[in-house]
């Protein structure tokens, strides 16, 4: 019997069945997540996600650790509730929001990948939808992931929800809150990133937009003696999704304007901002040139 082995088989046709457009989109989603997390890239690309993960997950683990060691621990009284965590981790999440979307959106325009993507089965709309899903899932890792760590950790420490039905309710609330905490920021960061191919400009725009709206609205509504309508709070781009997430978790901030703002306004604000920034991205990508 011959021992010969053919090493070079030459060009081979692909005889299998091609996957559809949905699979192409999912491939882009995975690629976007890998890119934002620095996977298959140099170490410096992993620094920012590692810092954010360290902040939010270490904080969650510390909370859980305290629950284990302090037997009379009441997470609400101690300021370690799910809502407290959502509020205090907000600035770390902001770092991720300002970093993730520019990384996965702007670089495609600058590096010329956009023309390759649009020459694939993706359209401008499906491309943007895949990128948005990628950013949303990335943000879920910091809005939902730590909440689940807390939920499972507290449950094991005996300070979590009692009974299966309570646990399931808490789990659903955590998933909803994490999703709400990621949805509007996804639209905002993609909307702003879609107007420039420069990553740094987009990151700065997102961070400044979120911090400035938070600073101005917080300053106006919390100043002593000020007779400001609480509904002005809907203009706080940074805190609108966080406060809604806090309420989904069954809690509520007791400072102005949130203590006076109805949940309906928060739901409406999140929906409207998501639509506005989503439309901004969509229109920008219908017009963006693909000559590069």
């Amino acid at each position: 019997m011959s021992q010969a082995i053919i090493h070079d088989q030459g060009y081979r046709r692909f005889e299998g069945e091609r996957r559809g457009v949905a699979a192409s989109m999912w491939s882009l989603v995975v690629h976007a997540i890998q890119r934002a997390l620095g996977i298959k890239r140099q170490f410096r690309s992993k620094v920012m996600p590692l810092i954010v993960f360290a902040i939010v997950y270490l904080t969650a683990v510390i909370f859980v650790g305290l629950a284990f060691f302090l037997k009379s621990f009441d997470i609400g009284d101690a300021g370690f509730s799910y809502g407290d965590f959502a509020s205090t981790s907000g600035f770390a999440v902001l770092l991720f929001i300002a970093f993730a979307a520019p990384e996965v959106i702007c670089t495609d325009r600058k590096s010329g990948m956009l023309s390759l993507y649009l020459a694939s089965p993706l359209t401008r709309t499906t491309y943007l939808a895949a990128k948005a899903l990628g950013v949303f899932l990335i943000l879920l890792t910091v809005t939902l992931g730590p909440q689940l760590v807390l939920l499972f950790g507290y449950t094991m420490a005996g300070t979590g929800p009692g009974g299966v039905d309570k646990f399931i309710e808490a789990f659903v609330r955590a998933v909803l809150a994490g999703s709400v905490g990621a949805l509007m920021p996804t639209a905002l960061s993609i909307g702003i990133s879609s107007v420039t191919p420069k990553r740094a400009f987009a990151s700065a725009g997102i961070a400044v937009g979120l911090l400035a709206s938070n600073g101005v609205i917080h300053g106006l509504t919390s100043s002593e003696g000020a007779d400001i309508d609480a509904r002005l709070g809907v203009l706080n781009l940074f805190y609108v999704p966080i406060e809604l997430a806090v309420r989904i978790l069954g809690e509520r901030n007791d400072v102005a304007p949130w203590n006076e703002l109805a949940t309906g306004w928060l739901v409406l604000a999140n929906a409207v901002w998501t639509l506005i920034f989503g439309a901004m991205a969509w229109f920008a990508y219908q017009r963006v040139s693909v000559d590069r």
Binding site: R18, R41, S111, M113, L116, A119, P121, L122, T126, D291
Partner: peptide, 19 residues
Amino acid sequence: PELRMRIGFAPEHHHLPED
């Protein structure tokens, strides 16, 4: 989309992701 599934394209520019 279905047609582009069967087309390969190499653009004129040399810009590709550096990293």
